[in-house]
């Protein structure tokens, strides 16, 4: 069967592949897209995937993701792969990686947690389980049910 390309190739930018099906819009929100962006953004959701059954894909033109942004994506799409495209070619390809500790990225959902007060500390979570991803607040030990909603 002829390979079908749902979204056209891009010249320069980033392709985020293998996003957990249904999470593409959250990935865009984390990346702060489309607010204020001049890039062309293409989104494909629930695309067939050999590895994952279904997956989402996001292509962002003229923007290369930096590692901190990548870590943020890893929290909601731990299997995502990042392809940096330069002149239609894959210049760099890497998997997202959930760090052992997540500092300053996720807000603790517990309003009574000390990390949500005026103290000189950053939010801090430790990874309890990677698949499915479970994280725990280093301070109050609360495990957020919905990580995406609590990303700073």
């Amino acid at each position: 069967m002829k390979k079908e390309l749902k979204i056209p190739r891009i010249k320069d930018g980033t392709v985020i592949d293998h996003i957990t099906a249904g999470q593409a819009l959250k990935v865009l929100r984390i990346l702060g897209i489309p607010e204020g962006t001049k890039s062309i953004v293409s989104v494909a959701m629930y695309v067939k995937s050999k590895k994952m059954g279904k997956k989402d894909i996001v292509k962002v033109e003229n923007r290369e993701l930096d590692p901190e942004e990548v870590n943020k994506i890893a929290l909601i799409a731990p299997k995502a792969t990042i392809n940096i495209i330069r002149d239609y070619k894959v210049a760099k390809k890497f998997r997202v990686h959930v760090p052992d500790e997540i500092v300053g990225i996720v807000r603790c959902p517990n309003p009574n947690c000390i990390s949500n007060s005026e103290e000189p500390i950053e939010s801090r979570f430790v990874v309890v389980r990677r698949d499915p991803l479970v994280i725990k607040c280093y301070y109050c030990e609360r495990k957020p049910d919905n990580i995406a909603d609590n990303i700073i």
Binding site: C108, N110, N112, C113, I114, S115, S117, E119, I121, C137, Y138, Y139, C140, E141, R142
Partner: peptide, 10 residues
Amino acid sequence: RHPKEGTARM
């Protein structure tokens, strides 16, 4: 002792 959770850890 503090009313906010996580204070002792901090």
